[in-house]
Design a protein around this nucleic acid. Sequence first.
DNA 1: GCCAACGTTGGC
DNA 2: GCCAACGTTGGC
Length: 145
Amino acid sequence: MGITTTMNYWLMKSEPSTFSIDHLEKLPNQTTPWDGVRNYQARNYLRSMKKNDHCFFYHSSCEVPGIVGIVEVVKEAYPEKDQSNPPTWYCVEVKLIQKFNHIISLSELKKIDKLQEMILLRRGNRLSVMPLQIKEWEVILKLSN
DNA sequence: GCCAACGTTGGC
DNA sequence: GCCAACGTTGGC
């Protein structure tokens, strides 16, 4: 107690047809490697994640894209296995913290004035791992209630 | 280093 | 399925 730490906040996308929050919920320890990221900027974000950082779990490329819950970083970045040649791709391990009762849809996020600077909402954005401002995190968290 | 072609992402 | 936007590749 009494230790102050700086927690960072993130948003991570997954296509639910490939891996959804329901899949995560059913796993042992509700923990999974977050792998398959094949973009350099996203990789760099993965590598800067710290244990205990929190991330929104986002469903993309689906009927209702949006944020469906919260995961926590439980293991910091390490190289994915079975890579014989460069480049080296990384993953982190995340654990389910909360599955929202309802999705916070992309269309809902777009309506919030305070979220207009979000990377997610930038036009043409394709990053699958992105940082959030703490204020963005807080605003979104309230929407989950 | 430039840039055209191609592949991928992801909302709609 | 369409297509805009972006990243990557590879010839030059």
